[in-house]
Simulated assay, not measured.
Amino acid sequence: MVDSESEKSTSAPSDAFDDVQVDERDQEESDTIALPSHVAGSGALDRLVENARDYATASTAENTNKAYAADWKHFARWCRMKGTAPLPPSPAMVGLYLTDLAAPTGPAPALTVSTIDRRLSGLAWNYAQRGFSLDRKDRHIATVLAGIKRKHARPPVQKEAILPEDILAMVSTLPLDLRGLRDRAILLLGYAGGLRRSEIVSLDVGRDDTPDSGGWIEIMENGALLTLNAKTGWREVEIGCGSSKATCPVHALEQWLHFAKIDFGPVFVRTSRDGKRALDTRLSDKHVARLIKQTVLKSGIRAELPEKDRLALFSGHSLRAGLASSAEVDERYVQKQLGHASAEMTRKYQRRRDRFRVNLTKAAGL
Rank of each mutant, 00 (worst) to 15 (best):
A108H: 05
A108E: 12
A110V: 00
T112Q: 13
T112G: 10
V113S: 15
S114Y: 00
S114V: 04
T115S: 13
I116F: 02
I116T: 09
I116N: 09
D117V: 07
D117W: 01
R118A: 07
R118I: 03
R118F: 03
L120D: 10
G122C: 08
L123Q: 11
A124N: 14
A124Q: 15
N126M: 15
A128K: 15
Q129G: 11
Q129E: 13
Q129K: 13
R130N: 14
R130M: 13
G131I: 04
G131K: 08
G131T: 05
S133R: 08
D135E: 14
D135L: 10
D135W: 12
K137R: 15
K137G: 11
R139S: 12
R139N: 04
H140R: 12
I141S: 13
I141D: 12
I141Q: 09
T143P: 04
T143V: 11
T143L: 14
V144W: 04
V144K: 10
L145I: 10
L145C: 09
L145D: 09
A146C: 04
A146T: 13
A146F: 05
A146L: 06
G147H: 06
I148L: 01
I148R: 03
R150G: 13
R150D: 13
R150H: 11
R150V: 02
K151F: 02
H152E: 06
A153G: 05
A153T: 03
A153V: 00
A153K: 06
P155T: 03
P155N: 00
P156W: 00
V157Y: 01
V157G: 03
V157F: 01
Q158G: 03
Q158W: 01
K159W: 00
